[in-house]
Simulated assay, not measured.
Amino acid sequence: MRVAFTWRIAALLALSFASAQDSETASIPSIGGGNGCPKIAPGPVSFNYLAGQFSPQALPDPIAIESIRQTLSLYALAIDGRDFEVLRKVFTTNARANYSDPIGVLNGVQAIIDTLPPGLNTFVSTQHHLGTQYIHVCSLTSAVSVTYFQASHFFTPYTGVGNPVDNSKVLIDRAQYQDTWARQRDGTWKITNRNLVRMGPTTLDGGIPTQ
Score class of each variant (00 low, 15 high):
M1N: 13
R2S: 12
F5S: 13
T6C: 01
W7D: 15
W7E: 14
I9Q: 04
I9D: 02
A10R: 14
A11W: 03
A14T: 14
F17W: 10
F17I: 10
A20P: 08
D22L: 15
D22S: 11
D22Q: 12
S23W: 03
E24D: 14
T25A: 07
S27M: 10
S27N: 01
S27D: 04
I28T: 06
P29Q: 02
P29S: 05
I31C: 10
I31P: 10
I31F: 10
G32W: 01
G34S: 14
G34L: 04
G34P: 01
N35Q: 09
G36H: 06
I40W: 00
F47W: 06
N48W: 05
Y49Q: 11
A51I: 06
Q53D: 05
S55Y: 00
P56I: 08
Q57N: 01
L59N: 10
P60L: 02
D61P: 07
P62Y: 09
I63K: 10
A64W: 03
I65F: 09
E66C: 08
I68W: 02
R69D: 09
R69V: 07
L72E: 15
A76W: 04
D83G: 02
F84Y: 15
F91S: 00
T92P: 02
T93V: 15
T93N: 14
N94R: 12
A95W: 03
R96E: 13
S100D: 05
S100W: 08
D101P: 12
I103G: 00
V105W: 12
N107D: 14
N107F: 04
I112D: 05
I113H: 14
D114Y: 08
D114R: 10
P117M: 10
P117T: 11
G119R: 11
T122A: 11
T122N: 13
T122V: 05
F123M: 12
F123I: 09
V124K: 15
S125G: 11
H129Q: 12
G131F: 00
T132P: 07
Y134V: 13
I135P: 00
H136K: 03
V137K: 01
C138A: 15
S142Y: 02
V144M: 07
V144N: 00
S145M: 06
V146T: 07
V146W: 01
V146L: 04
V146R: 04
V146N: 01
V146M: 04
V146G: 06
T147L: 02
Y148V: 00
F149K: 02
Q150V: 00
Q150D: 05
A151H: 06
A151L: 13
H153V: 01
H153G: 05
F155C: 10
T156A: 14
T159C: 02
G160N: 09
N163P: 08
P164S: 14
D166R: 07
D166N: 15
N167S: 15
S168N: 12
S168W: 06
S168L: 11
S168D: 10
K169I: 08
V170L: 03
L171H: 01
I172D: 03
D173A: 06
R174H: 06
Y177V: 00
Y177E: 02
D179E: 08
D186R: 00
D186P: 03
T188I: 00
T188L: 12
T188D: 14
W189T: 04
W189L: 08
W189A: 05
K190L: 07
N195H: 13
L196S: 07
R198M: 03
G200Y: 12
P201I: 05
P201T: 07
L204R: 15
D205Q: 13
D205E: 11
G207N: 08
G207V: 03
P209Q: 11
P209E: 13
Q211H: 14
